[in-house]
Design a protein around this nucleic acid. Sequence first.
DNA 1: CGGGTTAGTGAATGATTATGCAACAACCAT
DNA 2: ATGGTTGTTGCATAATCATTCACTAACCCG
Lengths: 176, 176
Amino acid sequence: MGVGEVMSSKQQRQQMVTRLIAHDNVSSQPHLQELLKEQGIEATQATISRDLEELGAVKIRIAGGDSIYAIAEYAPARVAPSDQLRRVMAEWVAEVTSSGNLVVVRTPPGCAHVVASALDRSGLVGLLGTVAGDDTIMCVATEEVGGTGLAEQLRSLSGVTDATGGIPRKKGTAHV
Amino acid sequence: MGVGEVMSSKQQRQQMVTRLIAHDNVSSQPHLQELLKEQGIEATQATISRDLEELGAVKIRIAGGDSIYAIAEYAPARVAPSDQLRRVMAEWVAEVTSSGNLVVVRTPPGCAHVVASALDRSGLVGLLGTVAGDDTIMCVATEEVGGTGLAEQLRSLSGVTDATGGIPRKKGTAHV
DNA sequence: CGGGTTAGTGAATGATTATGCAACAACCAT
DNA sequence: ATGGTTGTTGCATAATCATTCACTAACCCG
């Protein structure tokens, strides 16, 4: 397939997989399948297995001998092309504001880390680092670019307008 | 079994398992079984499965989509006297950058809170407070010292060199 | 000594994850 | 449009991993 994306497809599903893994204690692929279904996304175990591989997810052991899925944070040479960043931003970013050399990015609940991770790998000029909470990301801009300049870049990427809420792209993705 | 007995069979085997995992790219439990046999240790897959669980081993993904076993090592966060701040910093800090009155400290994934904790207890002059994510710490400097001054202190403690005159090179994301 | 308990193990089996294959849709260059 | 190519997916199945059960050996204590 080409670069163009089908609506409601692999990217969206994998984003949800990432979020579910980060949020819940996903113990198995059938379990994840079930959680996806609750979000209105249907897929077979085979597809989920492939998604997890592509996302670099691994099963880690937690207290009690159980093991759950987690995203390997040091993804090996995982390139995040700007196209990917734009998709993620467009999908999840609701608002971008700035103060001083800080930029505050708002997302739907639980989605902040997804966006922050994409920002992290983007190599965006003028971005020193981010701290992601549940629905908020704080971005530190370089002094050269400044909060205003960085905020402008982020707004451009996400498609939101200055100071107000996001532009709904596809169908509503306001989960949780 | 009694505690006093050092029936070394299991201990030996698990030690060998640890060594094999560390040195080779062990891809499966039958594979590990084979490697153990080469070392003169025989065990069934069931036993190896139990060993891996007790050792906290996990399967991680490496380049190419394959996955191999690895031992999940936990860095025991010991209570640190003030002198240990330097050791912690030297061990875990990868990069120190600043912007305005903020300093961004980057660490290996998962290590940020250890460093931040040490920083918090250090009573470092010019450090108001920290926020730690997964691999990023944001430090707020006092206005008197400033981000540049604090960054200089932190670089001195950690031994990292100045980052190319304030030009950002990497980006950090902290998943809280 | 016997009982009772506990750790360790293998064989068999259940649970989970990965994969070969075919089908299908979207794209591309004629 | 037409045929070739590529990417995505489900189905069925293989591969892999975890666990139950039964058994043994060692230990402890009267």
